[in-house]
């Protein structure tokens, strides 16, 4: 049995941070797990740093306080790296997944992070090439699937379809699924 895993998302208002955490929750449902997804509600401003959170476990989750010591940190916006402390409170041996155009080694140097695991992927580039605009949240979900073995790419794809099914045109959904898959494949670990 797996223990409780806590996840923190970093991004900026308007980048789909909350949506990404909801799709991840939906993927957790498809994996038969118990989960939570909740954003940090402050002043809502486009472009301001925002956070969202997930919890996942094989048994019911009872705690309802904020996540202060995440096992997994996901950074959707590369301009936050080195700007805010994305590693704050991270558990020992924790994992960082970041939208970053360099290698995990370079990111480790930038952040002074020598433990745990680091995954990097250029989610901005992937979304620009596939969707025609920068929307890094869905590629980042692909990165999460690579870094976090409890969520399969299949579950994440189904969750993405379920989330966007009524809102987006079929061809846009397919492009988002391509982003997800490419990100999964292109993510580098180090």
């Amino acid at each position: 049995m797996q223990k409780l895993i806590e996840i923190r998302w970093h991004g900026r208002g308007g980048q789909g941070v909350v949506t990404a955490s909801r799709i991840l929750a939906e993927a957790m449902l498809k994996e038969g797990k118990y989960f939570q997804a909740f954003p940090e509600y402050g002043p809502e401003r486009m472009g301001a740093p925002v956070k969202a959170f997930n919890r996942v476990n094989d048994k019911p989750i009872r705690i309802h306080c904020g996540v202060t010591h995440p096992d997994l940190v996901i950074v959707i916006d590369p301009t936050l790296l080195g700007t805010i402390d994305v590693l704050e409170g991270m558990k020992e041996g924790g994992t960082l997944v970041a939208n970053y155009d360099g290698s995990p080694k370079e990111l480790r140097e930038l952040l002074g992070f020598n433990t745990g695991k680091v995954f990097t992927l250029n989610a901005s580039l992937i979304s620009r090439e596939v969707l025609g605009r920068v929307m890094a949240n869905t590629p980042m979900l692909g990165g999460v699937c690579r870094a976090f073995d409890q969520i399969s790419l299949k579950s994440a794809s189904e969750a993405l379809r379920a989330q966007f099914g009524e809102k987006l045109r079929p061809e846009i959904i397919e492009k988002n699924l391509t982003c997800l898959k490419r990100a999964y494949e292109e993510a580098q670990q180090g």
């Binding site: 909801r22 929750a25 957790m28 449902l29 797990k33 118990y34 989960f35 939570q36 997804a37 909740f38 954003p39 509600y41 019911p60 989750i61 309802h64």
Partner: peptide, 12 residues
């Protein structure tokens, strides 16, 4: 139900 803590938290 507790505002935001429950009202806005997605749960199974």
């Amino acid at each position: 139900q507790d505002g935001f803590i429950i009202s806005h938290a997605l749960e199974r």
